[in-house]
Every structure is written in C-alpha cells, then in structure tokens.
Nucleic acid binder design. Structure first.
Lengths: 352, 352
DNA sequence: GATTGACATGCAACCGGTTGCACACACAAG
DNA sequence: CTTGTGTGTGCAACCGGTTGCATGTCAATC
C-alpha cells in the first residue's frame, strides 16, 4: 500500500499556504528578515517591517505555529476543557477564553469531557504535548490527578478550589446572601434548595452559603437534589418542593430553575404569586420568558481571567498562589414576589 | 531583554526529553532507522524494531507530534469557526463536532468570529497553517473568499450554500411548511415573520420557504426584521406585529421567539390564546418555560456530519459535490393554538 | 582620514522528526 | 564468475520557522 504524502498544490497563486521563504523571495530579502518582522520588529528598519507586513497581508500569510513551536518550544496554543459545552454556563466562558487567547495570539483547543473524569484525563493526556497550558473548567478529577497534570504544563482551574494551584472561582456566596435577604424581605420563611451534581465544587459552595444565610434570617431550609442537574431533573423535584411547604425555591442553576418553573406550572402553581423561584448563572435568564430572578455569576469574566493567568504563567510572568474569586449579585426579575402567607394576611397589594 | 527559551523539565535524568537522535546514538544506528521503527516497522528487520522500541521504552521516548506535524503536514487538528459561540444554536453543534473529531483522533481549534467577516478572515488565516482542514459555520464571508481559502485547506461549510464546496445545511423548509400547515389548520390567516440577519443564508432560506408555503394556504404574510436578531430585537418588533393584524408569528430563531413572547406579554397579549408563536432551532425550547412550539433543526447532527465529511476529505477518502441537507420538522408545544377569530366565530372547538 | 560604534541585514545551524534515493550485502539464477 | 533481485540501512534534504554570529554601511568622533 502506498502512503501518499498529503500536501496541497504548491506556490501561492495556485493554492499553497505562503511561507516566509515566499515572502522573502518576492521582496528580495532573507528569510531571517521576514521572520524578524514578526518576532523582533525592533531589530529592523521600520520601513522594512512595513514592507514585509504589507506583503504578508496581500499574500494572506500568517506564521506557521507548528514550525515556530518546533524551534521555540512554544506552541501558541492552550487547551480548554469543559464538562459540557452545551451547558449554557459555558459558552460565554468559552467565548471569553477564546477572545482573550486571541488577543495574545494564542489559539484554543476545545475539549468536552462529558462530565466524565476518564474522558477528561484522556483529553488532557492527548492535548498536553501540543499545548503550552491548560484551563480546566469545573474539573471532575481528583486533586492528586490535577496536581500531577499541572507538573507537565501550567494549569489553571475554574470553579475548582485546589490549594496551591492557580484557580478562578465564580463565587455565588454574595449572590445567595442577597437572594435570601431578598426573600426574607418578601416575607418568605420556608426555602427549598434544589442542588446540582453532588461532586461539583459549585454545588458544595452553594449548599454551604445557603445554609449559613438562611440561619441568619431564621428561615427553614429543605435541601433537594436535581438528578441529573437538568431541566427534567429540576422538574422532577417539584412534588418534593410542594410537599416541603417551601414558598421559595433556590435552584442550582438557571436550567434547573426553568425545570422547576415548568413543573410548578404543570401543578397549577403560579409564579411568583404562589411560589418564588431564583436561578443561578444568569446565562439565559434575560433571553427567555418569563424573566428569571437569578444570581449573576460573571462566567465570561472567569474565562477571560483564567486565560490571562494561564498566559502569564506560560510566559513566566506570574507568581505565587493565585486564587481569583469573582463575586456575584442578585438580579431581581419576574419570578420572585411576596410570600403567599404575607399576601393572604393583608397589606402589600403591591401593584394592581 | 533576554528571551529565555521556554522548555519543560522532562523524562530523562539530565532533564531533556529524549529524541530519535539520542536513541540512534545509543544504539549506533541512524535516525531514519529509529524513525522507521515507529512509522514503517515493516521496512526494518524485526529484531531492529524490537531493539529500538526497547530502548525507547527505557528512555521514556515518545515521538514529538509537533515535529512530525511539521514534516508530514498532518497536524491531527481541525478548526471550527462559528459566528458566536454563545448563540444557543452553536453549542450542540460544537460539541458534536468535538466529539466526532475526537473519535478519529483529531483535536478541534475553536474560533469565534463575532459575526464579523474581517475577524473571520483573520482567524482562518491564523488557523490554516496549523490545521488539516476547517469547518466554517454560518460563514459571513463572500463566496469568492471562501473558495480562495478552500484552495489552501479542505473546508466544509455549515449553513452556507456555495456550489462546488462541501456543505451541510440545516434545512428549515420542511419545518416551516409543517408550521404553516399547522397554523392553517388552527384557522390562522394572517402571519408575521420576524426575520434575522439579512445576510445570513438561514434567514434567506426561511423567508423563501415561508413565502411559498403561506401562498399555498392563501394566508397573508407580513415580514419584519429583528434587528439585531436577539431577544431584545425580537421584543422590539411586537408593536409592528400587533399593528399588522397577524394572529401568528414565525420567528427567525428561538431567541427571537422568546423576545417576541416577552414583548407580547408586556402588551397584555396572551399566548397562545390571542397569538401563536413559533420559534426555530429547538435549542432551548425544551429547557425553558413555557415550552415553545418550534422547528427542530438537527444542529448537532450538522456538526457531526460536517466533521465527518471534512475528515474524509483530509484523508483523501471523499469525492464529488457534497451537499448534505438535513430536514427539519415542527414540534408542537404550548405556544400555538387556534386563531382568535376562528375561536370567536364558533366551530372548531377542537379538543375541549 | 582613520577609527569606532550602532544599526540593519544575511548566513547557516538548529528544532525533531520524515522520506526519496542510493548503497551494501546476500543469495539465486544464468 | 557475472548478473539480477531483494532487503535492510544510511545519507541528506526537507518541513517552516528562529537565532547566534558575522558582515556591511554609514555617521559620529578623534
């Protein structure tokens, strides 16, 4: 069997990717000069740089990262691995990461671990040799495994709090504090929390925050779990919510919150008249109807910062124990209202 | 300023990662022999192969992918460029693409063009040298530009119909036919279409399909445009919709549809009692409340197929003029109902 | 007018593999 | 003893950049 060398038709006009050699020849300069126009323009006469760049522009030239990687050891590529691309929390984060990387001339290799630690390990192993660093979002791996991978390449974690590893956390604490204060003000006394994936850092953090805050306000709390943490999982918890006697629901995220909304409506429970619902993430709260009261989590910012930290690390710029905690805040929209008991008992009549 | 050569500490005791040269020297053979032990073992004497592999094993050697990529021109990477990662149409597509690529041992470089042709060009130029092929989703570039890029690397388009270029189309035609038939059956006679980005193939296709189908049913059609094609853009069209006298709205996509829903509710218009609304994409119709009647578009499949076609192309397996058209269908949920006039006038009473 | 830098560019080696071609050697047939 | 046919290896060029060092130019300085 013949193994053909796969290569596209040569020479720029007829469909090849242009190289420094092409530009050099056309301009009658050496390859080094072309190279330097991109890497060390300060060494060249300004008009030379300009000449080269102009030519590169018209030829559609861009430096070949693979070649550059071979000689410098820097690939100009970072990996970003998320548990589920389609979970609406991640797209804004991914986009911000991509844009941030692009600004520093890096590309992003994207991986979806399907919430599966084994798959996540596979991807990391596969990506590692060809990237300068990795961002792992909501990793499902154990601390030890993470530390091991971090010895091979710089790693920045998102929403995973491992001491001594650089990490960026979307901290829902403030938001949930505000949410519970908001509910307390509306007269609610009985809460339900519909939690997410038990292993996840974010769920753990939310549970703790809510438990603390509700105690401050003397409220009762029923903790449930959406399993899985999806629309349907949220919907399935509705009977338990109603049985608990809660008048307000805090959901693990916006997706679960929408599931709860749907389930409530099917049970003839009106929102917010009979039940208040608060989501978390603020990721499609503003693009669906009814507008969901939710906790805004700055997920895009997390992506941006993670990349920026990683690139600092890659460039040897960074130091110390990095732990970025991004605070959150409540956004009140249309799914929270006075507790039914408070209304029945009399006053507010807010509005009509 | 000193520019340090960045290189990670590695396997061998002296801190360097072993190369074929090291193995070759230790074994007293040539570098080619070592290389061939890994790539064409059939050309070597079995005991030679074994000797090399054993040595590689003890030295912890693994072939350097970057170097291999440079000399073979095969990187094991494909690029995927989308106009907006955060547009909910794309995440399922991206995920399917990533998974499909992974199955064939390819990685995905992701790019976000921000709906901007110039940015899209930049990304393509930057990615091209380091990928084996590209998938361009909903490209905003002109046909000529696309053709030009396709001469450098295999390119597969999604939702862009350029003759003689491989393309995968999520064809909304069938779905819109069904939608209009559905509305006709419910007694609607006046439709409004809230269109999306004027340049987009998908909008163009939808406009044509709707115009044809409504004619078949003798309905009137008012065409509006959500500008931009977002939640707010959709919401802003509501007054025009109401002024048009339409009793049913077809929206460019689910996001716009939700904007319309919100706007209608703010105007005291009930859905579906006073107005029916149909979205398109089926991307979060099932994860929000109320469940949106919509057209299901198989976007994940589009991603999967595009990658599969691209990898066939890359491997030289594929042929001919590829044009995959993925049909769509209507999914009736809770936002469509009998036309108000029909209800007032009497008969149907279909159901209750 | 010769000396000295500073500056801009070229030369050539190198990064770590792959591969077309040549060569050496073995063995079989003429 | 040639000639022919394989077979297993080595040589060297190449992929597309980067970079240490050398060279050439020109203006400022002595």
């Amino acid at each position: 069997m013949l193994r053909l060398r796969y290569r596209f038709p040569m020479a720029t006009p007829d469909g090849t990717v242009p190289t420094i050699s092409v530009i050099a020849k056309e301009l009658g300069v050496s390859r080094s000069t072309v190279s330097r126009a991109f890497t060390r323009p300060d060494l060249l006469r300004p008009e030379t740089v300009e000449k080269v760049l102009a030519k590169a522009q018209t030829l559609g030239y861009a430096p070949n990262k693979v070649a550059r990687a071979l000689s410098t050891g820097q690939n100009g590529v970072i990996a970003l691995i998320v548990p589920d691309i389609a979970n609406p929390f991640f797209p804004p984060l991914i986009r911000a990461a991509q844009v941030g990387a692009d600004h520093q001339d890096f590309c992003v290799l994207l991986g979806d671990s399907a919430e599966n630690p084994a798959q996540e390990s596979r991807l990391i192993t596969r990506f590692t040799p060809q990237v300068d660093g990795l961002v792992l979002a909501a990793s499902r791996l154990e601390d030890a495994a993470l530390a091991e991978y971090a010895r091979r390449r710089p790693v920045v974690l998102i929403n995973r709090d491992v001491p001594r590893m650089p990490r960026v956390l979307t901290d829902s604490h403030t938001g949930f504090m505000q949410a519970i204060a908001h509910l307390a003000e509306l007269g609610h006394e009985h809460l339900a929390y519909v939690g997410g994936p038990p292993g996840a850092w974010s769920d753990h953090q939310r549970r703790r925050g809510i438990a603390a805050a509700r105690a401050d306000h003397g409220m009762t709390l029923t903790t449930l779990q959406a399993d899985p943490a999806t629309y349907d999982g949220g919907k399935a918890t509705v009977e338990a919510i109603l049985a608990s006697g809660a008048t307000a629901v805090l959901a693990y995220d916006d997706v679960v919150a929408h599931g709860v909304l749907a389930g409530l409506t099917e049970h003839g429970v009106r929102v917010p008249e009979d039940m208040s619902v608060i989501g978390c993430d603020d990721v499609f709260a503003a693009t669906t109807y009814p507008p969901l009261t939710t906790i805004s989590l700055r997920c895009a910012e997390a992506g941006k910062i993670a990349v920026s930290v990683l690139l600092d690390l890659v460039a040897g710029r960074s130091v110390g124990d990095v732990r970025h905690s991004l605070d959150s805040h409540l956004i009140v929209r249309a799914t929270t209202g006075p507790a039914p008991r408070a209304r029945r008992q009399g006053p507010p009549a807010q509005g009509s």
